[in-house]
């Protein structure tokens, strides 16, 4: 097997070659388990809370959390809305049995519907989807009190594309999977023994009936990941990608999503008026004096 170092020089951007996305799952698993264990200890916390939707991202997150902290220190939250599928519930329960963590079911239908019933204006389905995502996160944060941390389940593809709800599914205390593209995350999932049915099913946020990520985005994760990998990880310009045969429209679209949604990935802007301002020139590490 060629070493990563020897191979680096021959990686070429090629729309037909997804191999540069392949990762060493054993190494990644070790790094992420240590990350969860170490950063939770630094925060002087003990437990992890994971929103378990039945999808692959939260499946990987909760499996890593049980390995890092022991299943007794992990709570999975399945938070269905009335349109959530029975398959999602089955998958969440299957993961709970397989990895041994406690799964709590907390439906969000009543509170979401109550809120929108009281509105008089016309409500777009995006608003309902965002409300659901934030409702779920508020429950995760509630269940994290007093000694738990909410684990993020947004992968690198979603974060870069901004395909998520700010302060909803994108919110967390720490995120172990945010540097893995969707296709890489599936590799890790299989390595962790997550059932194929969960790994291979079409990704969906289930924010409305029949929704799938790839239909809504208009492209596949496989295509997006390869473009993002060359653009972000290997710093190729869009023009170079197009020269190498990547679809010009898709490259432009993805680049624009990354740019337009950058605000979702950073802390809110603070207006600077004083001599020293949080986030601008008051720059302390988050692990300040942490063990």
């Amino acid at each position: 097997m060629t070493s990563a170092l020897a191979r680096t020089g021959v990686i070429r951007p090629d729309p037909k070659d997804p191999s540069p996305l392949r990762i060493d799952e054993v190494l990644v698993r070790k790094m992420l388990v240590l990350f969860i264990r170490d950063e939770i200890a630094k925060a002087r916390l003990r437990r992890a809370v994971v929103g378990v939707s039945g999808g692959v991202d939260s499946a990987v997150t909760v499996a890593l959390a049980t390995e890092a902290l022991g299943p007794d220190n992990v709570i999975g939250l399945f938070t269905p809305y009335r349109i959530s599928s029975g398959e999602s519930r089955n998958h969440a329960q299957q993961l709970s049995r397989q990895f041994g963590f406690t799964l709590e079911e907390v439906p969000i239908t009543e509170q979401v519907d109550a809120y929108f019933h009281a509105r008089t204006e016309k409500v777009d389905k995006i608003r309902i989807g965002n409300k659901m995502a934030r409702e779920r996160k508020s429950i995760e944060y509630d269940r994290s009190w007093p000694d738990g941390i909410v684990l993020g389940t947004s992968n690198k593809t979603e974060l870069l594309l901004g395909y998520g709800t700010q302060f909803g599914d994108m919110a967390s205390g720490i995120n172990p999977v945010g540097d893995l593209y969707k296709t890489q995350l599936r590799e890790v999932a299989l390595h962790l023994g997550i059932p194929e049915a969960i790994v291979r099913k079409p990704p969906t946020a289930e924010l409305w009936e029949g929704q799938t990520d790839e239909d809504e985005l208009g492209f596949t994760y496989a295509d997006a990941d390869l473009i993002l990998y060359h653009m972000v990880d290997r710093r190729l310009r869009p023009a170079e990608l197009i020269e190498h045969g990547f679809d010009a429209q898709l490259v432009a679209r993805i680049r624009e999503l990354v740019r337009r949604n950058h605000y979702k990935r950073v802390m809110p802007l603070i207006a600077k008026v004083s001599l020293r301002t949080i986030g601008h020139d008051f720059l302390y590490p988050r692990d300040w004096e942490a063990d």
Binding site: M1, T2, A4, L5, R7, T8, I23, D24, V28, M31
Partner: peptide, 19 residues
């Protein structure tokens, strides 16, 4: 800092340092 988890080798940083 450890970084570079491409398949088929050691951690990217480890390889560079050892070389």
């Amino acid at each position: 800092p450890g970084r570079g988890v491409a398949e088929g080798g050691d951690l990217g940083t480890a390889e560079s340092c050892r070389l």
